[in-house]
């Protein structure tokens, strides 16, 4: 089973990521993460299930997640390449604009050196790429003792602390 960093610890990931479904194919049973558009298309039959999460592609607007946040297991944002940084802004909007308090997962090209930024923007679970050592990646959260700017993890910029 793939590994997941959640609450700063490595755990087994028991949700299956569904990349896409064929035209007309209905969502399989079990714990799954569905593409947001698939979920929206089958929403009537799926919204009563409590084992479905949804994921957003980086070229889809974060607003697509807004209405479904309350009825799914969790929200996920895909990083197709780690250098595609749209997901950072989406995470902040999901947390700070839509006031989502549930699990927010980073999926896709999720690597050690980006975890610090992701965590600051509001992600709290990280599906570290399968060929990487999730245990080793835990160190990323300890990299910096301080940050200058406010973000989701701590909205108060350093200058406020300095002024006392």
């Amino acid at each position: 089973m793939p590994k997941l960093i959640k609450n700063r610890a490595v755990v087994e990931d028991d949700f299956e990521l569904i990349q896409a479904l064929n035209e007309g194919e209905s969502a399989p049973a079990g714990k799954i993460i569905l593409p947001i558009q698939v979920y929206l298309d089958q929403r009537e039959s799926l919204s009563s299930r409590n084992d479905i999460a949804v994921w957003l592609e980086s070229d889809q607007p974060a607003e697509m997640l807004k209405d479904v946040a309350d009825e799914v297991a969790f929200l996920a944002v895909n990083f197709p390449k780690f250098a595609d940084g749209r997901g950072y802004s989406y995470a902040r909007l999901i947390r700070e604009r839509f006031n989502y308090t549930g699990e927010l997962r980073a999926i896709g090209d999720v690597l050690l050196d980006q975890l610090h930024f992701m965590a600051r923007c509001g992600f709290d679970s990280f599906a570290v790429r399968e060929d990487r050592d999730a245990e080793e990646a835990l160190q990323a959260f300890e990299t910096f003792r301080y940050s200058y700017q406010g973000a989701n993890d701590n909205p108060s910029p350093l200058f406020r602390k300095r002024l006392g």
Binding site: D84, Y88, H116, C121, Y148, Q149, F159
Partner: peptide, 14 residues
């Protein structure tokens, strides 16, 4: 002020 704010800005690193 901009230098400090932009340094490791988590949302705008990529």
């Amino acid at each position: 002020i901009i230098r400090q704010w932009s340094t490791f800005h988590p949302e705008f690193a990529f």
